[in-house]
């Protein structure tokens, strides 16, 4: 199966300023593909080049079989865009916005259903300016879906949403994918990328530094786990002899064992074997945040 998106060595400059230097990745059909990176790392520029909204200066791009530089018009009819920065006329009503953008599709679409799914039905007569930030954001996502796209770009879509709305949005994004569309999700939230994305491209300083599944990234870049417990036993050298263990640190009664692989199971077995059964034994596995810190070198 040919990928939905193929990017090779994308490059984009604003004047003499290089915003994207070397970005390559492929996105398969039906994926939720994350683009994760610090602010200013070139995420928005990358996806706007893919949507044909900006002109790439170098590299090879193919989106749904179209070259965004030459076939932007045809491409845009097949994709949905939620832009990081855009607006609607202040006095435009929610229902008018949805019906107008829906009418741009040759077939016309069922915008009322999209409006309900995204919790905008009771705001249908409200003007854009009167909506809260979160409601405006949901309206933009709804507008991105109203042409029944095959590929949806969501650029920082949960920025401005409260935690409850974010969870709702995540469910809806999964539903977009379950409906058959491919999703490219730009975000700087680790938990969002980890929870939602099938695969993630980590961008730092204008280039892709890693592409993998969330667990793949963690296994590669932050394989360490930490097992922690409390004990009065002072001699723990038996733990240090385990292959899985890299280091044992203690401060007072609190012990933390750093290592990798099946660390928890081995440490637990060894402790029990030595007659120790701490009740607060727990493992702290690395998450995407640690991967991110590992990969993104820049000082914030």
């Amino acid at each position: 199966m040919t990928p939905v998106v193929e990017v090779e060595h994308l490059e984009k400059r604003y004047g003499s300023f290089v915003a994207v230097e070397d970005v390559s990745f492929t996105v398969d059909a039906g994926e939720i593909f994350g683009i994760l990176g610090p602010n200013g790392s070139g995420k928005t520029t990358t996806v706007e080049c893919l949507q044909g909204l900006r002109r790439a200066d170098g590299g090879r791009l193919s989106v749904l079989g179209h070259d965004p530089r030459r076939e932007a018009e045809r491409l845009r009819r097949r994709i949905g865009s939620q832009l990081q920065e855009s607006a609607l006329p202040e006095r435009l009503k929610v229902s008018e916005a949805l019906s107008f953008f829906s009418s741009l599709s040759p077939s016309g679409t069922d915008w009322e259903t999209v409006m309900e799914q995204w919790g905008l039905a009771e705001k249908r007569s409200a003007t854009f300016a009167s909506l809260s930030g979160g409601q405006q954001q949901r309206l933009f996502v709804a507008l991105a879906l109203v042409n029944e796209p095959e590929l949806v770009f969501l650029d920082e879509m949960t920025t401005g949403l409260d935690p409850a709305s974010r969870r709702v949005a995540w469910d809806l994004i999964r539903r977009i994918r379950d409906g058959g569309a491919t999703v490219i999700l730009v975000t700087h939230f680790m938990d969002e990328a980890e929870n939602l994305c099938d695969r993630i491209a980590v961008i730092d300083d204008k280039r892709v530094v890693a592409v993998d599944t969330p667990t793949g990234l963690i296994d590669t870049y932050a394989p360490d786990a930490v097992v922690a417990f409390s004990t009065d036993e002072t001699d723990l050298t038996f733990l240090e002899r385990l292959d899985e263990v890299d280091a044992v640190e203690r401060s007072g009664r609190h012990v933390s064992v750093t290592g990798s692989g099946a660390l928890l199971a081995m440490v637990a077995a060894e402790l029990v074997g030595h007659g120790l059964a701490p009740t607060d034994l727990r493992v702290e596995r690395a998450d995407l945040e640690d991967v991110f810190l590992q990969l993104t070198t820049r000082e914030q």
Partner: peptide, 16 residues
Amino acid sequence: GNRERGVLKRFHASSV
């Protein structure tokens, strides 16, 4: 004003 606020960009992305 529509360009400054990002309204035109929104239109552009939707093939207006």
